[in-house]
């Protein structure tokens, strides 16, 4: 009976796993230490499977096997060699191999060419600060990096413990209030990877995701230059009206739009919101309709997030605000 159930169960789990994209997977390494982690993971899976197979075989023989095997399996020598010596040797070897394989993570040789990015994990979003040439450029929830270059992330948290993890690019590191932790990552080639807060941090923790977009170095430089600029002027009459409404409705109490009176630091900087790929931390695509949804009904999209619902706008006003925000490229 058990064996008959096992096959379909394994098959369906396999099908489900196949559904996991490769944007957020340890088994799809795309740079730096991730290759070593993937290698180590495969070794662990293979070794673990082999040992499990041997144990199952021994169990079967201990129950149904000839007396000779049963006596051998029941002997004291078996317990000493297979139960004590084997695990000690195997695990010691594995530990040594693991340390040797990931030695680059432990070594903190200064890389003069590295790009430094600060990320602050906050309930429940990511505050990202770039520092090109002594000025700081603040963004949120989407990290763009140049492919092929080492990135040193400085990780902090002002509230509770979060954990910063981009499985395709490397290991995860906790963000601990009152401490600064560091993580080095590198993407071999351009691509989009998904990161996730990997330490339960309350309420919408599960939706505290982000994207890492690796760009060709020249594209990255151009992007960073554009991000450093203040917000663009609204282009249409509607967007103009949207900006006035955005400011009058008090959005600037929490959000900053550089170049306007909005200078709040409680929530994400919106100076270049329209250039991001998503609304509400990778939960919705960047469209005007989704911006409107988040303003009015963000509590249903990301339950527990700290932005109050703004259900005070007539439809035309909300359209204007969304047009303004989507135009902040």
């Amino acid at each position: 009976m058990i064996f008959r159930r096992a096959l379909p169960t394994c098959l369906s789990i396999g099908v489900l796993l196949a559904g996991c994209g490769d944007r957020q997977s340890v088994l799809n390494p795309k740079g730096g230490d991730a290759h070593q982690f993937a290698q180590l993971s495969w070794l662990l899976f293979a070794g673990g499977t082999a040992i499990l197979f041997v144990v199952m075989l021994a169990t079967y023989l201990a129950i149904h096997g000839p007396d000779r095997f049963r006596a051998l399996l029941g002997s004291e020598r078996m317990v000493v060699w297979a139960g004590v010596a084997f695990p000690v040797v195997t695990l010691t070897a594995l530990l040594g191999y693991g340390v040797w394989l990931t030695r680059a993570v432990a070594l903190t040789a200064a890389d003069p060419d590295a790009l430094h990015i600060s990320v602050s994990g906050e309930q429940w979003w990511w505050r990202i600060t770039y520092r090109p040439a002594n000025e700081s450029v603040v963004a949120a929830n989407e990290i763009r990096i140049p492919a092929g270059r080492t990135i040193v992330f400085t990780l902090t948290s002002p509230d509770v413990i979060h954990s910063f993890w981009v499985p395709n690019l490397g290991g995860k590191v906790d963000m601990i209030p009152g401490r600064t932790t560091r993580l080095r990552l590198r993407a071999d080639a351009p691509g989009v990877f998904r990161g996730q807060c990997a330490e339960y941090c309350g309420g919408p923790h599960a939706l505290m995701a982000f994207e890492v977009v690796a760009l060709p170095p020249s594209d990255f430089d151009a992007w960073l230059e554009s991000q450093a600029k203040p917000a663009s002027e609204p282009e249409s009459v509607e967007a103009h009206r949207g900006r006035d409404l955005f400011l009058a409705a008090g959005c600037g109490g929490c959000h900053a739009v550089r170049g306007t009176a909005a200078a709040g630091t409680v929530g994400p900087d919106l100076t270049h919101l329209g250039s991001r790929r998503s609304v509400g931390l990778d939960t919705l695509a960047m469209t005007e309709a989704n911006i409107k949804r988040f303003i009015e009904d963000g509590q249903h999209i990301k339950p527990g997030n700290r932005m109050p619902p703004f259900r005070i706008f007539p439809a035309a006003d909300l359209d204007a605000i969304a047009a303004y925000l989507a135009g902040l490229r």
Binding site: P158, L247, A249, G250, C251, G252, G253, C254, A261, A262, G264, T265, V266, R306
Partner: peptide, 11 residues
């Protein structure tokens, strides 16, 4: 900012 309290004046 540390306690998530926006300024009152914008509204």
């Amino acid at each position: 900012t540390a306690n998530g309290i926006p300024s009152c004046n914008p509204c």
